[in-house]
Amino acid sequence: MSALFTLLRRDLALLMPGSTGGGGRRGGTMLPLLFFLAVAMLYPFAVGPDAPLLARTGGGVIWVAALLAAILPLDRLLAPDMEQGFFDQWALRGISEEMVVAVRVLAHWLSFGPPLMLATLPASALLGIDGETLRLVELGLLAGTPGLAAIGIIIAALTVSLRSGAALSGLLVIPLAVPLLIFGAGSLSTGGEGGLALAAAISLALVAAAPFAAGAAIRAAREG
C-alpha cells in the first residue's frame, strides 16, 4: 500500500500543473492548460463576433481543445521513466507495470481533467456559452477525460521505445478518442444524458483496460 502512495506522490509531483516536482522544475506542466485556453481565445477571432454561432459551436470547440490538450503531455508520461531505468528497478522490487500504470492514469487524469474543467469556466465566457450548455460540457468532460487519460497512457506505452514517439502518439490518440468525442460532444446537440452515459461507459472500459494494455506494451518494449 505504501508503495502505491509513494508512486502516486512522485507522479503528482511530476505531472500536476505548476508543480515544481519538489525541487527544480521539470517544466511544461502548465502547457496543456494554456493551450486549451489559447484555443478558446483564438476561436472567436477566427469565426468573427457572431454570438449565436459562437454559443452554438462553442461546446464542440471546448471538446476539441480538451482532446488536443490531452495529447501534449504524452511524451513525458512514460518515456523518461523507461529511459532512466525506473521500470527495471520497479520490476526487480516486485512492483508490476500494471500497478505503475494504474497509478499514473490516476495522476495523469488529476493533472489535466479537473484543471481543464476549471479552465472551461473562463473559456465558456470567452465563447459566450449559456449555463445549460456549460453544465453539459462540464459533465461531459467529467465523463470523458478519464477515458482520454487512459488512451493517452496506452499510446504513450506503445510508443515508449520509439525515437519520434511524441509526434506519432499524437496522431494515434486522435482516432481512438473519436468515440469519446462523438458521445461527449454529441450530448450537446441532443441535449440528452444518454450521450454522457455512453461517454462515461467508454471511459470506464478504457480505464479498466489501460493498466493491462500499457503494462504489456512496456514489458514488450523492455525485451526489444
Binding site: 516536482g21 525541487g23 522544475r25 527495471d88
Partner: peptide, 20 residues
C-alpha cells in the same frame, strides 16, 4: 532472493536534488 541491479541508468529523477 531479491535482486539489486546497478546498470548505466541511475533511475534518479534528473530535476530533483540528490537527497530527494
Amino acid at each position: 532472493g531479491a535482486i539489486g541491479l546497478l546498470d548505466e541508468h541511475p533511475a534518479l529523477d534528473e530535476h530533483l536534488p540528490l537527497a530527494k
